[in-house]
Structure formats: structure tokens, C-alpha cells
Write a protein that binds this DNA or RNA. Sequence first.
RNA 1: GGGGCGGUAGCUCAGCUGGUUAGAGCAGUGGACUCAUAAUCCAUCGGUCACGGGUUCAAGUCCCGUCCGCCCUACCA
Length: 535
Amino acid sequence: MSSGDSFYITTPIFYPSDVPHIGHGYTEVAADVLARWHRQAGDDTWLLTGTDEHGQKMLRTAAAGGMTPGEWADRLVAESWIPLLETLDIANDDFIRTTQPRHETGVQAFVSKLHDDGFIYTGEYEGYYCVGCEEYKQQSELVEGTGPFEGQQVCAIHSKPVELLQERNYFFRMSDFQEKLLALYEERPDFVQPESARNEVVSFVKQGLADLSISRSSFDWGIPIPWDGDHILYVWFDALLNYATAVGYGKDEEQFERRWPGIQLVGKDILRFHAVIWPAMLMAAGLEVPKHVFAHGWLLVGGEKMSKSKLTGIAPEQITDVFGSDAFRYYFMRAITFGQDGSFSWEDLSARYQAELANGFGNLASRVTAMVTRYVGGVVPAPGEYTEADLKIQATVARATADADAAMERFAIHEAIGAVWTIVEELNGYITEQEPWVIAKDETRRERLATVLYTAAEGLRSLAVLLSPVIPKATAKLWTALGAEAGLGALAVQPLRDAGGWGQLPVGSQVTKLEALFPRIEQEVETPAAAPAGA
RNA sequence: GGGGCGGUAGCUCAGCUGGUUAGAGCAGUGGACUCAUAAUCCAUCGGUCACGGGUUCAAGUCCCGUCCGCCCUACCA
């Protein structure tokens, strides 16, 4: 909690041949909101994202498009993934690509160390190989054969028998870490979050860990094994290390010391890699494991996991084009309990936009700035003596700030926003009850008018600060309209944990007209057709 | 097969170690008000807490069973 602490948070790195959908956006926004919160609170914050560009699938899709995998990745990164971050207003501090030299050298240093320390050995990988697919198949990818192949296991794609093949590979002694991992989960119950994710991981590890095959020799799009040029590193081993190489592992000791360890935010589908393999790798290398591995849930559309094949995949632009990036950010952070699966629907998005952003917060900002402009010439007036109603607002602001910060510490982003929203609700009620438009007609009550307007404006000031990590664009406009920058400086540097202190907006600040922060969207929002075909 | 999570008002969800008449938001209905993005505020309607047993003075909240949904059961990323 103390100011200046390192807060290093990562998202999973994108596999660029996917098409960006709102699930990717959801992860990015969550990490960004947490990072912005901590950054503005004065913590030494670093937000990392990037792309995972190795692996057989990249090689194949690139070849299919007549390109080298490197060219293919360059194009996808430039055309899809960097734009995604812009679309969603993500303020990442770094973007790592696993094809960058800084990553490859760091990875090789890491693997060499494990090799030197005896955590890697040569073994035989045995698996079912499908000639048609040209790759090994997992048991789950095999089905019972029919017809001539009755009684045999066949490839689910080609319906032909698979061969049992062996291949010389390098293995990581992951099984050595079973007990250490269990001890870690035990000693640090918040290492894997949320609780449901932790349970799955614990029961999985208790079933026993096998060593992990970490090299491939059947294709060459990957990082070479330093001591054996015929093998490349298994792509997950490579990919996970981005969290370390991006902050200087094996290269910039000072930066690494400053950032490490971090927080890995992931989707629950890749939890195991992050909660089992990853900490085992770090333990082997003598590095600290992450502070937390937090698995968020899936977005459900129509009660099912969103998927392209079912035409439920939604491109982020479909939402931001209509509602804007702030609304995207707000909606997913507010409507979904962070860590659980959450339902997405256009109806819900539209309803919340209207009720909460437009009618709630946007209209509050609008009515307050309008009254200050109309009744006191746009100059924030000095408050007189506070009454019980005014003090109640002050208490609400203080409590909301404390509650929100506590919630953010627990990754309960939805709760944090809920806590801040109590200010919106209280303030709207306060204004309606105080009736400044009635007071304004009575010349003998100028001081009371000033007090009410100051309370409302100062309340808005706190909202601008507290909501800026979530809806940075709208709060920036509000900050300008409040004329706060002249006396307080830029919104982005307002210390978040002090946002609950009363009386920060300087008397005399020049309030100006405010355009609608979240204009009503009159059009009937219909479910658009499936996402546009990807690259 | 084994394991996990969930099934609470029309919708989305809260309900911690069991304890007064089960809550919120939205939607619906009625009223107040006019500063504001026809916004806001107040009131109100609405639930056999999946089902069946059990423990208990007391169960949505613990135990057993059943049904339904989703997920995990290791090297595509």
C-alpha cells in the first residue's frame, strides 16, 4: 500500500494469428485499469503486454499466406494488435515480442542456466503422431476408429490411425517441484486467485506432475536450444519467459531488481501454465515466483463461451465505434465480477451505458457545471458553514476512496467501481434535495447556494480523480470543465489514495461548459452480424 | 470415471464463520421536481432461494442424494 512500491503487472501475450475480440480486450482493460490505479496512486508501476510469435501454428499460417513467419507477425502486430491497444486506450509501458533479441537472449540465458544446474535432461518423448496433421496428438484429440479402423485410436481430424513414435527431446524436471508448489499454494493462499482457480490448481498438482518436454526438432520456428542447434524451445517455455525478459532478465539487472516479481493476469484457460509450469521454472532458476497469478473468467454470450466458430466473437471496435472506449472499459469492469465468468449482451451494455454513464455520471457532471456557470458566473464559490447533508457527502467521498482502494488491492475491480459510484448516487440525491435552483432565487441565501455548489463541484473533482483509471477520456474532459488543472495540475498526477480528502478544488476555479460526457445513443442497438473475417 | 464451479425476483447478480418479515441494480408501476443528456429524486410491485431428504431451537447458508449448466483431467497457442 505504501507509495512507491513496485507494481508490475502483465497480460498474457497475444498469439497474433488470432483475431482480436472482446475477450482479449477485456484482459487488457483489466490490467490497464489496475495499472492506472496504482500508477496514479504513486506506486512504481509497469504494465507489460506483447505478442507470442513462435510455434508451429504461426509457421503454418504464414506459409499459407506466402510469407515468412516474421513478416506475417510484423503485419499482424501492426494491423491488429497495436491498434487494439489504441482502440481501448491502453497505457502500457512496454510491448514485448518474443521474436525480439532482448527476449531471445534472455530466454537462452535462462534455459542454459537450468541446463547447467541439472534441471534439464535428454529423454525420449513418446506420443501418438498423425501423419496427416504432421504432429503429435494428445489423448484427448484421439477418437475411437470406425469401419476398417475399429478398435484403434484414430486422429479426430483425419480419422486415420496414429502412430506411436519416439523422439529425442529435452525435458525439464518439473516433477521435482510438486511438493514445493503445493507448499507455495499452502503458504500463500493468495498466490493463485481467485479461490476457485486455486482449488483447481492444487487438485491438479496433487495428482502428480510429470516432467515437461521442452524442445522440438520437427520444425524450426522458435528459439534455438543453446547447446543443441537441432532443437528449438517449446513455445510455452519461451512465451512464459516474456514476463522476465521484458524487464531485463539476464541483461539489465537493475531494472529486473526494480520490477520483479510481478503479477500475472491471465484468462482461466491458460491458468495451468501460469500457476504450475511458470513458478516451477522460476524456482528452478532461483528466481522469486510472481506475487500473484490471477485468473479472470470468460465472457459469455448467450450463456455460452464466446467463440468465433459460433459467430459470437465480437470485435472490440463494434462496441467502441458506437459507445466509445470509456464505455467499453467501464462496462466490462463494472458489470462482471472480476475473476468469474460474465455475461455479455448488447442489451445490458446499452442499458448500463444509458442508466449509469449517461443518466448517472454524465448527467451529474452536466447539471453541476451548468448550475455553477448559470448561478455563480462559472467561478467555484467559497463554501460557507457545512450542514449535516454536506458533511454526509464528504463522508461518502472519503469512504468511497478508502473502499475503492481496498477493493483494487484485492483485484475486485467491480467492487472498487461500485464503491466510487456511491458518490454519483449520493451527489445526485443531494442536489435534488438541496434544490440549488430554488436557493438561487433567494438573494438572502447566497452563502448557502455557494456551499451547495461547492460541495457538488468538489464531489465531481473526487469522481474525476477516482474514475480516471477506468474512464480516462471522460474524466479528462470533466477535469478541464472544472477548471481544476490551473490549481491542482494534471488529472493523471492527482494522488488517488488522497482523493477522498475534502476541499481540494480551489475556490475561484473557472468552470466551463461541458459537452455531454456520454451522449444518449438513440439508435436501437441491434446485435451486429458476426465479427468481420479476420486476417 | 475423478475433480471444480454454479443453479436466489422478468434480466444481471449480492447474500462471510447457519439466527429477526431473503437484498441490490436494471426493467415495470405511481408520485415529486425542473439545475441537467425527457435527465434526477421518492415510493412501490415482484422470489415455494433447482429438487428430495437430514442435522438443528433455527438453513438460501451445514450434511446426503437427485436433476440441470459450465469447466478441468498436462506439452496448439
